[in-house]
Nucleic acid binder design. Structure first.
Length: 556
DNA sequence: GCCGTTTTCGGCCCGACTGTTTTCAGTCG
């Protein structure tokens, strides 16, 4: 069992307890333990062997026993008992926006519905409105939510698929006969939602690879296999495909399997099908055709082939270019750690600056800071800065954009901060005009430096709010406001398409982790991938800049 | 169920909006 799988079980226990309306603090305890484990930087199995499970924050005697049982047996008696009472299909319904634990409980108890398909049928048959507290709008929410789920077509986020793919690839590479192995397909191109995990393996021993796949701890089943391919299902029910080629064909197959189809169609004529033994590397392939090397993230037939032919591809931003992180939370609001701990984690990444940007007072659930606390936080940061060498902590805030476009703090207070992020956390359903006006008003505020998670989308969960992007981007450009690429793999907001538009309009971008936990600083790589897919260069991204240049820009 | 310069039980625990109601329960960030 991986940490993530254990965390998912603990979260499901919390969900079922919530549906059963048990003590809310008990539910909270399971959620906290799940979150701690999700963010752990050590493997639970290792911790168990070292008898250190109880060191995990939020894990006491009871949860520890359950974790150990799950690690040994893949499940625990308590969880099995709960899922016998409330089937997992009932929990699937919680994914629908506007449908919470109480609603799900009533639907399950009164109508006996325990899966999404039956729920949709009941909503279409207008049976949901017969239940207490539910009406036409609840049915609409169900139908609308199901549409969103269907749109994603069973795809999973890169944040879920990539770690699993990396683990699988590293495992396969351990086989003696493997000379090369690479994650290919949409994961290699860095798409934010992917349908499966594809691994290309160079080996002459098919049988060894098949045995190896068969023994993988994350394997659920092998569905089919032939001389060059093994297909099946991995944990989290993600489909996989292992493609096995002889070593001399590896690089041409790497190109072919990375795709995308449209990139391939544009590049190759019908007659051209791999292998091409003369190809020694991808760079070699493009060079021999008189082109620059095209990075996997660009291979989407969005003008990259033409640009590569003219040697006009941008120099893409990379993780190594990043010098700081401008959107970080601490314990002062809803973060998990003290500022000094986040600073230490940033130093470990060799950053030269970070901005502490806790929430503002309106976001009460997250412990948003009021004027007084913000003042106190500045004193703490000043003290830390006087001790730190090599890293500067910028005094910032993620200030809420209120319903009418005003900000949660007065200008007088904002002007004294090093960095102001403005973002929306409420009133998602305003109409296009009002929503756009609201953001534009924030962008026009001379103290606002960055607009964070512009569209508010949550991948597989919620579409972005209705925005007139043309008008918004125009205002952002005019006011020299920076747009954020939020690196959280559930957000990746703005996406590559908007990022590229923004770049063309001269808008600068900040790639931020929005870290609520030390480990979250590592999410930066997902934002980088999105930036690369948006054709961004280091110069387009303000947090690749030297500190002095950045501070100058913020001060203007 | 966890946690304790509060110390082994009692605290943990927001607030606004939405939808279904006609005074409030459920959802969400």
């Amino acid at each position: 069992m991986t940490n993530r799988e254990v965390a998912i079980i603990l979260d499901r226990i919390a969900d079922i307890l919530q549906i059963k309306e048990e003590n809310s603090f008990k539910i909270q305890a399971y959620r906290k333990a799940a979150s701690s484990i999700y963010h752990l930087d050590e493997d639970l199995n290792t911790l168990k062997q070292a008898r250190r499970i109880e060191e995990i924050p939020g894990v006491g005697k009871a949860v520890k026993a359950k974790i150990e049982e799950i690690l040994e047996k893949g499940s625990c008696e308590y969880y099995d008992r709960l899922t016998a009472e409330v089937p997992l299909g009932v929990l699937d319904m919680l994914a629908l926006p506007g449908i919470g634990h109480k609603t799900v409980k009533i639907i399950y108890e009164k109508l006996g519905i325990d899966n999404l398909d039956d729920l949709l049928k009941a909503a279409e048959a207008r049976r949901i409105r017969t239940l207490p507290g539910m009406g036409g709008k609840t049915e609409y929410n169900i139908k609308k939510g199901m549409e969103l789920l269907r749109q994603s077509g069973g795809k999973v986020t890169l944040g879920l698929a990539l770690p699993l793919a990396e683990d699988f690839r590293d495992y396969l590479w351990e086989a003696k006969s493997v000379e090369n192995a690479c994650i290919v397909g949409s994961i290699r191109r860095g798409k934010s939602l992917v349908s499966d995990i594809d691994i290309l393996v160079a080996s002459r021993d098919y049988e060894e690879i098949r045995q190896k796949v068969n023994n993988y701890r994350g394997l659920i089943e092998i569905s089919e296999h032939d001389a060059s391919c093994i297909k099946g299902l991995l944990t989290h029910h993600i489909e996989f495909e292992v493609i096995i080629v002889p070593p001399q064909d590896y690089f041409s197959c790497l190109l072919w399997t990375t795709g995308s189809k449209t990139h391939r169609n544009q590049l190759f004529k019908d007659s051209e099908v791999p292998p091409w033994p003369e190809v020694n590397s991808e760079i070699d392939f493009y060079t021999k055709r008189g082109m620059e090397y095209i990075a996997p993230e660009l291979r989407e037939n969005q003008g990259e082939i033409e640009a590569a032919g003219k040697h006009q591809l941008p120099q893409l931003v990379g993780l190594d270019d990043i010098k700081g992180d401008l959107h970080i939370h601490s314990k002062w609001s809803d973060g998990a750690h003290e500022i000094k701990d986040m600073a230490a984690a940033a130093q470990a990444l060799n950053y030269s600056y970070i901005a502490i940007t806790d929430h503002s007072k309106s976001l009460a659930i997250s412990g948003g800071l009021n004027e007084e606390k913000l003042g106190a936080q500045k004193v703490v940061i000043d003290a830390l800065n006087s001790e730190l060498s090599g890293l500067q902590i910028l005094k910032g805030n993620e200030v809420d954009i209120l319903k009418d476009g005003r900000l949660d703090f007065e200008d007088d207070l904002l002007k004294d901060l090093d960095l102001v992020i403005a973002s929306i956390h409420s009133h998602f359903q305003l109409d296009k005009e009002k929503q756009s006006d609201r953001i534009m008003q924030a962008a026009k505020n001379q103290h606002v430096d960055i607009i964070a998670h512009l569209t508010g989308r949550l991948l597989n969960r919620r579409n972005g709010y209705d925005l007139d992007l043309d008008r918004v981007l125009e205002t952002v450009a005019k006011n020299h406001t920076i747009l954020e690429i939020n690196s959280h793999p559930d957000r990746l907001d703005i996406d590559e398409e908007i990022a590229r538009r923004a770049k063309d309009m001269g808008i600068k971008i900040a790639i931020n982790s929005d870290a609520h936990h030390k480990q979250d600083l590592g999410l930066m790589k997902y934002g980088i991938t999105t930036a690369r897919r948006g054709w961004l260069s280091p110069d387009d991204v303000v947090n690749t800049w030297e500190k002095e240049k950045l501070l100058n820009y913020l001060g203007e």
